[in-house]
Amino acid sequence: MSLFDWFANRRKSGPISEDRQEREIADGLWTKCEHCDVLTYTKDLRTNQWVCSDCGHHHRIFSDERIRQLIDANTWQPLDVHIQPQDPLKFKDRKGYGDRLRDTQAKTKLTDAVQTGLGTLDGLPVALGVMDFRFMGGSMGSVVGEKLTRMIERGTATSRPVIIVCASGGARMQEGMLSLMQMAKISGALQQHQAAKLLYMPVLTHPTTGGVTASFAMLGDIILAEPKATIGFAGRRVVEQTLREKLPDNFQTAEYLRDHGFVDAIVPRTQLKQTLAQLIRLHQPVAAPAVVDNHTPWANGLNAAEPTHIGVDL
């Protein structure tokens, strides 16, 4: 076989699929950091939650891995796994939406772009939704809307804090206006969760844009973001076209949003679980003292049967 044939064959076999790339990462002994080019033993990278120990680059991770990192072992109860997407508009661009769904499902082993469930995080019960960018760019259609809404409703009914890890290009065009309306639906569920005085914390990861930014991503009581994540409403290219000039490099980064007052804190992935746990604990009412100690000097003169004002009736 000549070198020319080899190239021809190689071209025929097509570009390396995303699937194969992933397998290479998963099976490969070493992984090269896409940011600093340093080779890391894959096992170590995984232990470090796919954050490069050399440059701090956050490799993209997907929903299963994220759930594994945040939820205590053996406590994850997935919700609504049987909800399947449909093709209500019979939408066809360069490929039919129905076919696109089937292919993406086969490739990703996901039903749609979000996984939701209940579990404990450092022993604290939470309701968690994790978007998955592999599934059509994490786009939000009817299934994402319905699963997140049900998860939030479940959180409200069981008085749990809600956490949503966002990663999405925005509303899914293939479901047209049904997708846009999911923004309203989820926001409505969050309104009820908020009215019940419960804590909601979105975690914005790379990328969080469009309709997701213009709804639940920006509605957190506390909004956290991963370092360097792209977060914005309009796409960078669209803004550049509107403005007809180049934008600063840090435009629409997590750091930029924090500096402009739209993100509360940037949390490296390796500290995310403990930070979320810390925040949930900081919002729990102070526990009532188990025994009223009549011997403490400040208790003198107080009727022990009356509640003291140390946060008991919060």
């Binding site: 399947q84 449909q86 299934v143 319905e146 049904l178 999911q182 309203a184 639906k185 569920a189």
Partner: peptide, 8 residues
């Protein structure tokens, strides 16, 4: 709004 969406 709760009832808007099409899925199986």
């Amino acid at each position: 709004y709760r009832q808007i969406g099409v899925f199986a």
